[in-house]
C-alpha cells in the first residue's frame, strides 16, 4: 500500500491556500484560481496513471470536453433553459466522464489494449479531438468560444476572491474525497491493478470494470476542472483539449509524484508558478530547463520530486 500524506499536512496546505487572497492581492488570486484547476487535472491524472497504472497521454481531452460543454450550456447555445451554471457544471463533468467511459469501454473491452499501446491510442484520440474542434466553426474553430459568463456568485466580476474560494473548496473536496477513498480497499485494488493485474483477475476482480470505472472517475474530475476553468477564464479554446495541455499535465504529475495525490497537486502549482516566476528570468530557456528536469526525473527519480519530502514530513508529524 502506498504511504499517505497525513491529514494534518494536507489541511495545512489548504488552509495556507485559503489565506492567499488576503496576502497576495487580486492578480495572484486569479492566477492561483487557474493553477488550482490545473491541480485538479493533475489529481485526475494521478488517479488514472499514478494509481491505476494507465498512462493516458490525452488527459486534456476530458478537461477540454468539460470546458466546451460548460461554454455551450452557459452561453445558451443549447437552449436558454439549460443555461444554469450549476447545472452546467454537473452536466460538463458527466459528459467528460461519459466520454472517458466510452473510450475506456472501447479500449479495455475484450483483449484489452494496455501499457504503451494504450498511451499511443489515447494520444491519437486527443489529437483527433483537437483537430475536430479546430475545424468545427459551430464551436468557434481555432478561436474557440469567447464570452463564457462568469460563475453567478452574486459578486462583482472583477473581484477575484469569491471564484478563488469556490474553486479552492471544490478542489479540497475532490482531494479529500479521493484521498479517503484511496486509503480504503479501493486504493488497494487500484495498486494491484497497476502492479499485478493478472493476480487481481485471478482473485475474481473484473479488470475491465475497474479500469473503465477508474478512467471514468478521472474523466469526471478533469471535466469538472475544465468546466470551472472556462467559467473563470471566460473562454474555451482548442488548446484545452489536445496535445499541449495533456503533455503539461503529465509533466506536473511526473515532477510532483505520480502516486501521491498531494505531490501531484503541488507539482501543478509549483510548475505553473515556477514558470511565471522563472520565465521572466530564464526566458525561452525555461522550457528547455523544464524539459530537461522532466527527463531526469523520468530516468532517475520516477517517484517524483515532492513525494519523498511530503512523506518524510508526514512521518515526522505522525510521530
Amino acid at each position: 500500500m502506498i504511504a499517505r500524506v497525513p491529514l494534518a499536512i494536507s489541511l495545512a496546505v489548504f488552509v495556507a491556500l485559503a489565506a492567499l487572497p488576503w496576502l497576495a492581492g487580486d492578480y495572484w488570486t486569479g492566477q492561483f484560481t487557474r493553477s488550482l484547476l490545473y491541480g485538479l487535472l493533475a489529481l485526475s491524472l494521478a488517479l488514472v496513471w499514478g494509481r491505476g497504472g494507465m498512462l493516458c497521454l490525452g488527459q486534456g481531452m476530458f478537461f477540454g470536453t468539460g470546458g466546451y460543454v460548460m461554454a455551450l450550456l452557459t452561453m445558451g447555445k443549447l437552449g436558454p433553459g439549460l443555461a444554469d451554471a450549476w447545472l452546467a457544471l454537473i452536466v460538463a463533468a458527466a459528459s467528460a466522464a461519459a466520454l472517458a467511459a466510452i473510450v475506456g469501454v472501447f479500449v479495455f473491452w475484450g483483449a484489452s489494449i494496455s501499457g504503451p499501446y494504450f498511451a499511443i491510442v489515447t494520444l491519437a484520440i486527443a489529437v483527433v479531438l483537437e483537430q475536430s474542434i479546430r475545424s468545427n466553426y459551430g464551436l468557434g474553430g481555432d478561436n474557440g468560444l469567447v464570452g463564457v459568463p462568469p460563475l453567478p456568485l452574486g459578486t462583482s466580476a472583477f473581484d477575484a476572491t469569491p471564484p478563488y474560494l469556490l474553486v479552492l473548496v471544490v478542489v479540497a473536496a475532490a482531494y479529500f474525497t479521493l484521498d479517503a477513498t484511496l486509503s480504503r480497499r479501493i486504493g488497494l485494488v487500484l495498486d494491484a491493478l497497476r502492479v499485478n493485474p493478472n493476480r487481481l483477475a485471478y482473485l475474481g476482480y473484473s479488470l475491465f470494470a475497474w479500469r473503465v470505472a477508474t478512467f471514468a472517475a478521472g474523466g469526471a474530475l478533469a471535466g469538472l476542472a475544465g468546466a470551472l476553468f472556462v467559467a473563470v477564464d471566460g473562454f474555451a479554446s482548442p488548446t484545452l483539449i489536445g496535445f499541449g495541455l495533456s503533455a503539461e499535465a503529465l509533466i506536473w504529475v511526473a515532477l510532483g509524484g505520480r502516486t501521491v495525490l498531494m505531490a501531484a497537486l503541488l507539482g501543478a502549482l509549483a510548475v505553473r508558478h515556477g514558470e511565471a516566476l522563472l520565465a521572466a528570468w530564464l526566458g525561452d530557456w525555461w522550457l528547455l530547463a523544464l524539459g530537461s528536469v522532466f527527463v531526469l526525473v523520468a530516468v532517475a527519480a520516477p517517484a517524483g520530486l515532492l513525494a519523498a519530502p511530503l512523506l518524510w514530513l508526514g512521518a515526522r508529524v505522525r510521530r
Partner: peptide, 30 residues
C-alpha cells in the same frame, strides 16, 4: 543517457523520450 537506464520500465521510457522531444523542440526554437 536515457533509454539504457529505463529498459525495464517501458512507461518511464515514454516519459523520458517525451521530455526529450520538448527539449529538442525548444533547443531548435532557441
Amino acid at each position: 543517457v536515457l533509454v539504457r537506464h529505463t529498459r525495464d520500465r517501458p512507461l518511464d521510457t515514454i516519459l523520458a523520450t517525451w521530455g526529450l522531444s520538448l527539449v529538442l523542440k525548444q533547443a531548435i526554437v532557441l
